[in-house]
Structures are given as C-alpha cells and as structure tokens.
C-alpha cells in the first residue's frame, strides 16, 4: 500500500455512541472532535431515521 493510500484509509476517530471508526465527525465535520458521531448514530439521535428491528428477529 502506498503512503497516500494508507493515509486515505486510516482513521483514528471513533463514534462516541457505537465505537465505529470514522474519518471525521458527521455533525461538525472535524477530524478532531471529542464528541464525534458517525452518520448512522447522528441520524438516529436527531430523529431523521429509525432503528429497524432485525429482519429475521424473534
């Protein structure tokens, strides 16, 4: 892997809710954010989408 490709894929920021590694905060778009959220958790928190139950649950 070239250094450039490595830089593109490395992320050191974690979503504060689910722990997923993200490149930047979905809310403020900063690479360094103490309360970073991923897109999924942010949309759930703001009520823009709903968490769907497992398709084969039960």
């Amino acid at each position: 892997m070239t250094p450039a490709a490595s830089a593109c894929t490395s992320s050191t920021l974690a979503c504060r809710d689910c722990g997923r590694m993200i490149d930047l905060c979905a809310f403020c778009e900063r690479v360094e954010c103490a309360v970073a959220s991923c897109h999924v958790c942010l949309r759930l928190a703001l009520g823009e989408t709903l968490a769907h139950p497992h398709a084969h649950g039960g």
């Binding site: 905060c25 979905a26 403020c28 309360v35 703001l46 009520g47």
Partner: peptide
Amino acid sequence: STFRPHVAITEMAEYMGAH
C-alpha cells in the same frame, strides 16, 4: 453536513453547543 427541517430544536441546540 445538512439537517432536515423537522429536527427538534432542542437536539440541534444541544449538538451545536457540544460541537
């Protein structure tokens, strides 16, 4: 990042303050 018009203002205020 953009936000939809229906999002509650309390949530937006809280997030904007925290960030």
